[in-house]
Design a protein around this nucleic acid. Sequence first.
RNA 1: GGUCGGUUAACCGAGUGGCUAGGUAGCGGUCUGCAAAACCGUUUACGGCGGUUCGAAUCCGCCACCGACCUCCA
Length: 489
Amino acid sequence: MDNRFTIYNSLSRKKEPFTPLHPPFVGLYVCGPTVYSDPHLGHARPAVTFDLLYRYLMHLEYMVRYVRNITDVGHLENDADEGEDKIEKKARLEHLEPMEVVQKYINSFLKNMEQLNTLHPSIEPRASGHIIEQQQLIEELIKKGYAYEVNGSVYFDVLKYNEKYKYGKLSGRVLEELQSNTRTLDKQDEKRNPFDFALWKKATPEHLMRWPSRWSDGYPGWHLECSAMSIKYLGEVFDIHGGGMDLQFPHHECEIAQSTAAQGKESVRYWMHNNMITINGQKMARSLGNFITLDQLFIGNHPLLTQAYSPMTIRFFLLQAHYRSTIDFSNEALLAAEKGFQKLMKGIETLDKLKPSLTSTIDIPSLRKKCYEAMDDDLNSPVLLSYLFEGVKYINSVSDGTEKLSINELTSLKDLFKVFVFDILGLKDENISKGDEKLTSELMKIIINLRQGAKNKKEWAESDKIREDLKNAGIILKDLKDGAEWEME
RNA sequence: GGUCGGUUAACCGAGUGGCUAGGUAGCGGUCUGCAAAACCGUUUACGGCGGUUCGAAUCCGCCACCGACCUCCA
């Protein structure tokens, strides 16, 4: 495969041709969720974005190892809440074991991800399952002089790191500015500098999630897991690291510092960040309380929703925007996405019924080329969709007889839709009535024939009543030149 | 305050130094017993002010507004 595929590297702030370190293998690491409450629309964005990447890389015949972690320990509440562990806090509130909380929300996360038709990553490692690896990394950092212990906790020495490497290169931050901007003057702070971050925290007596170590009974810092697990599963240097833009600082910056300090070299070659979903112009986040969970979207029970939206509508909605743009949530936008998605699916249904002609009036190879160009350009799914809609227009024109497709071109167009819509964009037809499909279609044939009889006798009242009754039952009847077709509402 | 990004028609959202993005919604038409679908045509655009250029919504500068991030025990 020639590598025309370019991706925007957050590190260089430029689009770069993608060349894996060890082709045909590609290592991909993506920051997964902290599992302490139900997944919301914001979680769907990275999941779908990197699913798209994963699918496209595989389509390009790369052998991809896709690692997406699950944070089940170490992610503390920020500022507001005394820095309690997010999961422990939830456990206390719900009277559950921390690991019960973790299990509950892993289950709902994975369920929602399946509904969105994202493929399972190759490995989904959990932070709590890699305490040893994280401790080893801490040892390494202490040995190399980039970490120090105070009262049983271990901190990363950012100032020391900055002497040799540049701290802040990913987020464009300069240490001196960070220093001057730091607002706290904590008297009892154990850290040498406010911007140092915890690698290991000594557990207070009431803290539940704790592991023994030579420093203290404690737990790992949040940033550590990603360094430890990416190195373990993808090696010291790997191709792509993804995650939400809000993780750039401090999380990814700290990851870079940890991995670089421990290994003497950087581990990530391409950093990719998806943008946020906004609601009324503001980031949708649990901490802001303005989020809509995926279940609420699928069921439709949220004050801001006028109806339920299917998982594929949500997926289509996300794919209609480029992953590096913010995408604003609204009912209107979702409604438009729902219609658009249905139009695409109907087009594909029509495509299956097209009859070939002897000649073609449409140039399918050039359409195919444009589709690849869109994907190669940093996963430009909205542009790809616009070309697919161009394809739908062709399909409908052929169906209407204003355009023609030869057998070869028709086959090629079918393949194009299969590849781009289902394999790469990961959309799927959600049409109901799968179970009794055969019976239903036989019954519908009979009903349509009866109605045709009435129509032949110009008994319009009768034929309209049949159509009306069907509509009330959720079946839409469409009269065509020869006969009629139907679909579920 | 610092860093980064954004501002495109009714809504959502691409993109490019000169050529229709696309979807949804409007409007007019074709088809149809009527409707729906489909097709054809079509209406609202590039935040403001300057500059570069034969030409800028696109490049540069300034301004306005919006957003993200600015750590771990606030």
